[in-house]
Design a protein around this nucleic acid. Structure first.
Length: 287
DNA sequence: AGGCATGTTACAGG
DNA sequence: ACCTGTAACATGCC
């Protein structure tokens, strides 16, 4: 579920359905996620109104009057919004229909607008933590994040400064959340293909033109994916009922041994491991 | 049975 | 200090 476009889609869906709602009850079914869910959540958030929902990188933030909730979806974290009638939950349009098992529902928020917000996470790599608003600028998770890829701070000047004398490969740099925050394995693979740059290219070897194209392509792929409702989630729907369908546009991710999709290229998509993560590239146009 | 999976972190070693 | 690789977390699917 979790790269920047998917988190942004979840945020927008939540804004449409539960923003301004008040939490009337919280049930923690299983507190063992990546970090143990603290009881503080109940203590500080019951009877509080959700004032705002925002996104930073792949993190979601629910803002309340005196506290905020920081959420990371890990690999398989999902938010379900369901209608609650006579204590029974019913699906709403904002619901991932496939393979959502209630046994992976870990926390239930009952809201005052007839809806319930449920955090479901198969692998439990996600987390939910509650903080005081006054601590917002002290949160390590957020402090160490690099620039947002869609912001103006992610520009040629910033990029060139960082890669100067940098010996690591470009794929690992783009995956590094302290450099640019929000890209993950899928989008990094797609961006490098679109830019015709080999994933193991040493950062310092990139010229100005390549850096420019890389930045432009990162922004356009992320924007396109958001416009298409995100990707990588089967049967994902947001409040408008639209499905995420960016996975249809994947050119290299998961395409090992397929022909390169560039019309004039006779290459094949190869798969290699870089820092233990699958990396896909065309053996000709990303020489 | 074994390998792999959209993420992050800790640690070992070069 | 920087970089890489590996393992770990927990579960499901090929």
């Amino acid at each position: 579920m979790p790269e920047l476009p998917e988190v942004e889609i979840v945020k927008r869906s939540l804004v449409k359905t539960i923003n301004k709602a008040k939490i009337v009850d919280i049930k923690i079914q299983n507190k063992k996620l990546r970090y143990v869910i603290s009881k503080d959540i109940c203590k500080y958030l019951i009877n509080q109104q959700i004032i705002k929902i925002s996104r930073r990188s792949k993190y979601l933030i629910f803002h309340f009057k005196t506290n905020f909730l920081l959420v990371h979806l890990g690999m398989t974290g999902k938010f379900l919004v369901m209608r609650k009638i006579d204590n029974t939950l019913f699906k709403t349009s904002f619901y991932y229909d496939l393979n959502i098992l209630p046994k992976h529902n870990h926390i239930y928020f009952t809201l005052n607008n007839g809806l319930s917000l449920i955090y479901n996470d198969v692998r439990k790599f996600g987390f939910i933590k509650c903080y005081k608003n006054s601590d917002l600028n002290k949160i390590t998770f957020l402090k160490k994040l690099g620039v947002e890829p869609l912001s103006n701070s992610f520009n040629n000047k910033y990029f060139k400064k960082i890669i100067k004398n940098k010996k690591k490969n470009i794929k690992n740099l783009l995956m590094d959340q302290t450099f640019v925050s929000g890209l993950g394995n899928i989008y990094v693979n797609e961006v490098l293909f679109l830019t015709k740059i080999n994933p193991i290219r040493v950062c310092s070897s990139l010229n100005t033109k390549e850096v420019n194209r890389l930045i432009v392509n990162i922004k356009s792929i992320l924007r396109l994916s958001i416009a298409e409702g995100g990707s990588s989630i089967k049967d994902f729907k947001h409040t408008s009922g639209k499905n995420g369908k960016f996975q249809q546009f994947f050119a290299v991710y998961g395409k090992e041994n397929k022909n390169c999709s560039r019309i004039s290229c006779k290459g094949k998509i190869k798969k290699i491991l870089i820092s233990s993560r699958s990396s896909f590239f065309c053996n000709i146009c990303q020489n």
